[in-house]
Computed example of a mutant assay.
Amino acid sequence: MFRHVLSLALPVSLIALLGACGNGQEVEAPPRPAMVVQPQPAGASLDTFAGEVRARLEPELAFRIGGKVAKRLVDVGERVKKDQPLAELDPQDVRLQLEAVRAQVAAAEANLQLASAERDRYRTLLERQLVSRSHFDNAENSYRSAAAQLKQIQAQYDVARNQATYAVLRASEDGVIATRRIEVGQVVAAGQTVFTLAADGEREVVISLPEQALDRYRIGQDVTVQLWSHLQQRYPGRIRELSPAADPQSRTFAARVAFQDADVPADLGQSARVFIRNAEDVPLAVPLSAVSAEGGQPFVWVVAPKTATLERRPVRLGAYGERQVPVLEGLREHEWVVAAGVHVLREGQKVRPVDRDNRLVELAAGE
């Protein structure tokens, strides 16, 4: 009996279903869930920049004379002491120059002795009135000229003697060789940088700031620094220096961040991250996953509170942070923004807004 009733019920249900499909009515797809967030105050977001630990003082060392490199005594990464020899030039040329000037000094001394004897002889003859006053004055002038010439050549000799010592390049202070730009046999000019010395003492973090956001940063601004070797801790710092010119290749501005604590365990070459809070100029921020772009124009999907449909909203963004990006124009604080899956959405699509815990969001509550 049950089988008979079931066999009669199945055709009836199939007929009803086919009748519903054939009446011309389109079955509406259910709203898809969309995780939404509200823009957060920018004070809750940080601009993050990757950096490198460097020495505060990094003098560029160079020979004071030109010549051919005969010896290179240190390499990159070696620790050196003040006045330690770093490299030597071929001393042959400076030695020859020193010998030439020394010979000139000897000649000038002999000339001065001759002029002195001549003056003394004319002085004796003048006292006996055997020569005129003008002859004695000529002898006196010759003596003074010879004395001045000797003084000049002695100064040249001192310069040549100093230059002989300039053939050896020495460290200006204690530190570590950061860069090396010479090899043995290379000919260098006077003043050409051959080593960069990372002097012992304070350490800083060098970062690059984007030119479109440079006006948000200033010297003395407080920041926090995180070292990759100590990820569990952040150290206070401040912007000590801002470059006045952009790098010609990256078009970014170099900035140096000084630690406020002298005991920070920062070593040369370590990687670091610098966090800069900018609550004054940037009003809101959204997650990076909420932003999409088309044709170079960034936009976000805003959920209309009354209809729960999507609206494509162009925005103007600031410098990207680690997890968030500041929104300079295009959003208001009470609006809801889709925070995930933005690449599969379309204009006017109806959604079911949920939070990160998959709980339904009352959009009107945020107005």
Rank of each mutant, 00 (worst) to 15 (best):
Q149S: 15
W228M: 14
E118V: 00
E88F: 02
D247L: 10
R180P: 02
R123P: 06
F259Q: 03
G66T: 04
S243T: 01
F195R: 07
Q156M: 12
E202C: 00
D281H: 14
F253I: 07
V291W: 08
V344P: 07
L214T: 11
A339M: 04
A147R: 05
T309M: 01
V274S: 06
A255I: 01
L125T: 01
V342Y: 06
A29D: 07
P314Y: 00
V76R: 15
A266P: 08
L360V: 03
P91S: 02
E28Y: 01
A285G: 01
A308W: 06
Q104F: 05
V76D: 03
S250K: 08
N23D: 13
R170H: 06
Q226K: 13
L14M: 15
S45N: 10
K306V: 09
R234M: 11
V274H: 07
L61M: 13
R312H: 09
A255G: 12
R72N: 08
R133F: 03
V257I: 15
Q233C: 08
A55E: 08
Q129D: 08
R79H: 10
V286R: 05
I153K: 13
A16D: 09
V344N: 14
G366K: 11
V12A: 15
R218H: 13
Q92I: 13
K151E: 12
Q129R: 14
V344F: 10
L150R: 15
L114Y: 07
A199W: 02
Q104T: 04
F259R: 03
S116H: 10
G185I: 03
E28Q: 13
G67L: 04
P265T: 00
V69F: 01
A87Y: 11
D267M: 09
A146K: 04
P244W: 08
Y143G: 07
A115P: 04
E311M: 15
V37R: 10
P85F: 05
E311W: 13
D93A: 14
Q92C: 09
P210W: 01
Q25A: 07
V187S: 15
Q129E: 13
Q249V: 15
Q152F: 11
T307A: 14
